[in-house]
Amino acid sequence: MVWSWIPEYLPKFMDGLLVTLQLLSLSIIFGMLFAIPIGLVQVTGPRWLAIIARGFCTVVRGTPLLIQLWLLYYGLGSLFPSIPGIRESFMWPILREAFPFALLAFTISVAGYEGEIMRGAFKSVPKGELEAARAFGMSRFTVLRRIWLPRAFQNVLPTLAGEFVLTLKATPLAATITVFEVYGIGSIVRQETYRIYEPLLFVAGIYIVLTGIIVVFFRWLEQRVPQPV
């Protein structure tokens, strides 16, 4: 085992860590924002919207993330340059990068998995509570904001830590489309130093620490959120 390469590559790993954390947090935030309506319309929405949401969740959960990622990056990426004038537009520098494609793919993935969970969470809120809120004269939107959504979140909180860990463990896939997060940096070290195990073990160690932090954080958060009796 040779570890002398660590000091040289440590700054790169810090950059990679930043990319990993950005990808993780942004895709969870955006994914959750989509997951709420996706879960909601399946419980209360019009039939055609519910069917679309259901189909979206089924397709996202039924195909490998790697295929989705490649479809977006190679497929969508090959499509953009054919749009006339796009090279001159202000969006071009963003569309040329790999990171937005990774972020899009991960956001869709989180929305699909979390949308299914939110559906169950919305469904499991007792009907009586919603009726009581309506009886108090709250508008449907106020019921959602004050009662339904907070109660649904209470239900999903225990599963959120798992979702974070799953998404964290999926982030190395982004390296296959040239996003250099922690694992991607590890691959660079492997190529440049010709060491096989050490960079992989080092990378594995980073993920173990990150997973530990996520688990401890959510345990702390769960204690702070009041639980229904």
Partner: peptide, 13 residues
């Protein structure tokens, strides 16, 4: 706790 991709490479090699 370790990503499947890292595990696959580690276990494979």
């Amino acid at each position: 706790a370790v990503p499947e991709l890292v595990l696959i490479l580690l276990l494979y090699y």
